[in-house]
Write a protein that binds this DNA or RNA. Structure first.
Lengths: 197, 197, 197, 197
DNA sequence: CGATAAGCGAGACGGTACGTCAGGTCTTGTG
DNA sequence: CACAAGACCTGACGTACCGTCTCGCTTATCG
């Protein structure tokens, strides 16, 4: 009688990285940020909450912001993916609205704002933030715009990067100052800068 | 016979607030931020640098961000005043360009970015930042726009607040991400959103 | 009418050293050593027990052994003074017996043994132990012997230092190995090496 | 079919204890103690230096002091054997002088002092030290004295154990306090306590 | 004019978190 | 099954700042 399941059992630790610990840290950091704010986000608190040793954190992350960056990358991939297939004007408009909702409603959006903030205080954070998040994402946003332009869905007034800055800038700025940009304003900017067909 | 000068001399201490100490603290905070970044901006470092006792700082400022806020308010009044007299399209365009230069070139601009950042981490800071800086300044910016509109210099597509967010947002966002928005992009937004005569 | 007391009141802290904290640390260290052994004598434990901040300990003592050295010096001054007045054979014999009892019965004796031990592990400790305890005490012991010799109370076979080593050595050695030298043996060595009148 | 030997060659690992690893650990511990002092004697450092896994140490030794005890036992058997054949006064005197040289000159002597020290800090160490080193050695020293007494080589004033304490005590005490007892003093004690023929 | 009261530099104090090190346990994969 | 390797939790290390406090001084104000 042949081979019941391979019994994965518990393989909690060994000489390989412990996935459970990794996730516990990511979630602990996320939760602490959302529940008690960035001020409560200390390595000790994360370790305590995750049920993990401080050393385990220091072994795998150079700073607490890198932890946030990890959660941000994983979360924004799921919750705010850059549309990668067909690029219609409507899809782009939807992305902008999702972006606004992400920043003002989603816990992961709080993480993004916190990292932007921390990047002002520390050049190392700024560098990693660009290399690991902003850069790659901008790449895909630019590609989305170019595709839509090629297809004739939109005909932007400015070059792709400037266009993105002009559209995303107000959204982020409003989120940073605690307000939330109205959908109608978003629409006006969208119509105005992209001139959709 | 009209009283020889009151000889203010150095009044290093006494029973009234010591202006020299106040200025020393403001400058020390400013300098530390610019030279070594926000991470080096501790109360102890400010006190050390200013040659002042910690208690003197705690007596007059509730937190180190309030010190920055004080310097920001004084400095941006001097270096980036909101035009309050006549409001022509050209004056508004100049203000936007000055704003960009302020953020990316002036030490006081670094202070503003640092405070925006800190406001993400701490609600109290956010509140004070709005009440003491953002709010009053927005008031004057709005007034400037209204005046220009009334006079027929511009005819904005959006209501004043949305207009300001849409113009200032990209400038701030670019500064926050370490880049610097090109003048040409600024001009396009300006033309587009304000439709100057 | 001779001036009622100058009202010392409580002056618990200020910009001068806090005597209460100093004593709390000394006692905490002492107690921990006696109750849980040298292994439990960590700076953190001392601070915890004394109700004192770690920094307060580091401010005044370079190492935990120096704390022990402080208690040892204060305590052995009280509990095992070197006879400084008249020096008869009987007084010297009494001192030797007291020394044995100090090492094997008194908590302060445990402190002495612990410091001797720690001096084996760390040259700095050895140096301080000699300069602050062993040296000055040996001085007084030597003086006691010389005085007794001059008066004709004893006529030692060896020079003073060798005599002390020969008498104290067995006492300390037995204490270190957990046994306790019999009084009769002490008497034999005493008679033999000092040849009292 | 030539049945070449089973090629034992280097049997670095397998299912029996690896003698090379055992020796590497003992030597690493010894070297570290001599070169950098007891403070540098950590399990991790020993493992590093011996090129051995920590687990290998924990598998065979309950504590680092037991490692030292192992080296001490092996070394002092070779370098400071208790004379077991004929016991003349001269041989005993030589043993005392060798003992003094062992403590003050031989690396293995440093190990003995370190263990004595550590025994003050930890009762478990004290117990093992007595059972594995002090006890058996004292046995042989006592036997040596008894033999010499029976033969009439010496006629000690005190019982064997007290005699040994009285002779060895000053030697050890001087070594512990960093000085070194003069040979002449040793001779005086020897003559005085043993009264050799 | 002398008492009072406040601001000041200085710095000790009880704390929290930092980033590092070692302890001792456990698991993996190799020989 | 012993071993090298090394991840893991625990807890102490010594340091930096936090925000509060007392000290001894100087100086303006007021009775």
């Amino acid at each position: 009688m042949p081979a019941t399941s391979p019994a994965p059992r518990r393989a909690r630790s060994g000489n390989r990285r412990d996935e459970a610990a990794r996730l516990a840290v990511l979630h602990a950091a996320d939760d602490l940020l959302v529940e008690h704010g960035f001020g409560a986000l200390t390595i000790e608190a994360i370790a305590r909450r995750a049920g993990v040793a401080k050393q385990t954190i220091y072994r795998w992350w150079p700073s607490k912001v890198e932890i946030l960056l990890d959660t941000l990358i994983e979360d924004s991939e799921k919750r705010l993916p850059v549309p990668a297939e067909k690029a219609t004007a409507e899809i782009i408009r939807g992305y902008l609205r999702d972006f606004e909702r992400f920043l003002n409603g989603d816990p992961a959006g709080r993480v993004l704002l916190a990292i932007i903030a921390e990047a002002q205080h520390d050049p190392g954070t700024a560098k990693n933030f660009h290399e690991r998040y902003l850069g790659p994402r901008r790449e895909r946003e630019r590609a989305m715009l170019v595709r839509a332009t090629d297809v004739g869905e939109i005909s932007p007034k400015l070059d792709p990067d400037a266009t993105i800055d002009a559209l995303v800038g107000p959204i982020v700025y409003c989120a940073l100052t605690g307000s939330s940009i109205p959908g109608s304003v978003l629409d006006t900017l969208f119509e105005d800068l992209l001139r959709p067909r």
